[in-house]
Amino acid sequence: MRGAWTIYRRELAGLFLTPLGWILLFVALLVRGILFTIYLDRLGGEVNAALSLTQGGSVLYWVLMVLLPPLLTMRMVSEEASTGLLEFLLTAPVTDAAVVAGKLLAATTFMALLWSTSFLYAGTAHLLGAAPDWGALLAAYLGSVLASGLFCSIGLAASAVTNTPLIAAFVAVIVNVLLLFVPLVRANAGQLLHLPPDHWLLDAMRQVDLLDHLSGSAWVGVVDSAHVLFFLAWTALFGFLAVRLVETRRWR
């Protein structure tokens, strides 16, 4: 536990000691800020609707969600493996799981910070007299953080596969996109695959359908333990995979 906390602090500091972290934050803040004002304008001043677009529901949100976690995590294992730092960490008195957990938490924290800019917009709107629904925003934010955790764990596992950060990012982005394709396929399963509505494949797809879980809870202002668990379970699965892949580094 202490080991994971130490690694977490180091990784988070590492993200902010390199330009990458600042650049990602800057770009996200800028783009999200501009788009929020555009959303607000188009929606005729509906603050809550515009806020929910910044926490899901817009294409940009999913672009950031698919691209940023791989960029954050791509170096975490692959680069350390090639510089020998992984050898240092794996011979330090911390478990492999603690190393992965620390890194995963650091990347997720960074994403959480990035999504938290929505609170700035809500605060601004509040100051200007509109009444944002803070509860709904908080629930949506939690959903974003949970989903980020899942994407970060995918990125970490991809990073543990290869020694080249760019390949790791590429693999992770592909997995992320495939994951987001599931809801699309599921929604159109009747026409695409000619499946009856009670087919087992649809049930299976439902178990990996992110959007279904988000729209059932976070996006409607509900924090539901079942949906929280759904994200935690998938995050843990990829986290476990990452731990195992890091372990195979010892003999690769």
Binding site: R10, A13, T18, T83, G84, E87, F88
Partner: peptide, 12 residues
């Protein structure tokens, strides 16, 4: 243990 590559975080 001091590995041959002397692993250190360069940004620290």
């Amino acid at each position: 243990y001091l590995p041959e590559a002397v692993p250190l975080y360069r940004e620290h």
